[in-house]
Amino acid sequence: MSKNLVYIEHAHGKVQKASQVALAAANKVGGDTAALVLGQGVDEIAAQAAKLGVSKVIVVDDARLENYLADIHAKAVAQVAKAEGAENVVAGATAIGKDMFPRVAHALEAGMASEISDVNDDGSLVRPTYAGNAMATVTVETAVKVITVRGTAFEAVEPGGSDAPVEKAELAADVASKMRFVEFAETKSDRPQLTEAAIVVSGGRGLKSGENFTEVLEPLVDAMGAAMGASRAAVDAGFVPNDLQVGQTGKVVAPQLYVAVGISGAIQHLAGMKDSKVIVAINKDPDAPIFSITDYGLVADLFKAVPEMTDEVKKLKAG
């Protein structure tokens, strides 16, 4: 029976959905799965993790882990993984998972499969390559396997059932970071998180300016109770913050409904949203590649169609 260790990422006092998805992937691998929580003052997180169907929760509560820093966090994960004899060490493919887990792999002399999208019955793993244009089946050849998991690929494990036991572990005394956390400039928003929302409305270069994002797109986003996303072109042009970028090199989303407004549909953008359940596009160019993957396509000028759609949605909701 394999032993799995899943790193539990948290922000604002909450376990991140990406970690619940990573747990689901570990469950599909099978065997015994423990959760690992790192940080300072993380009892509450440990309590949340204990409800996620794991055999136990291991907590390393240490002032040196107050802020996320790749080197010391990776050492903490590797230390616990070794002590536990974990064979599969798993995390969500978030900014932190991507940043830290190769270092974990190195410390465990393990091979690492990045951002897997499936686990086959024979234990081999599936991962998208070439912006999702080639799905690779891979096996990690080392005794210990390090895996990060695509946030859209598995059904997140939801809390429930009995509480797993919580154990404390100590970070080795001589471990220190060579990095210094300076600050985190958070993008504040009252909207749902892009990677967790049921509906995502994204804007592209067709919006033409940041003001148009605010005045034209955001009313629709809010009328639909959606998260807002963007294409790289919109982010590069400074219309919206970086962390809204959807795509090969941005966020991967798969909501129930994805609405692409003024986005052409380059392969790098499709890589981040083509697994959405229902895809809608509004674009004035009937030949835009985005229409090759839409369920409902509307060829129209967005400056006319989006305000109309906002009104229609509001009317519908007002009942």
Binding site: A110, G111, M112, A113, S124, P128, T129, G132, N133, A134, M135, A136, T137, V138, T139, V140, E141, T142, K274, I279, F291, S292, I293, T294, D295, Y296, G297, L298, V299, A300, A305, E308, M309, E312
Partner: peptide
């Protein structure tokens, strides 16, 4: 350390309706 057994094209997504109005 990670061996690639095979690659396959992703499953194709069918495009559906074009709608005329909002």
């Amino acid at each position: 350390k990670v061996k690639q057994l095979k690659v396959e094209p992703p499953s194709k997504r069918e495009s559906g309706k074009t709608v005329e109005t909002v």
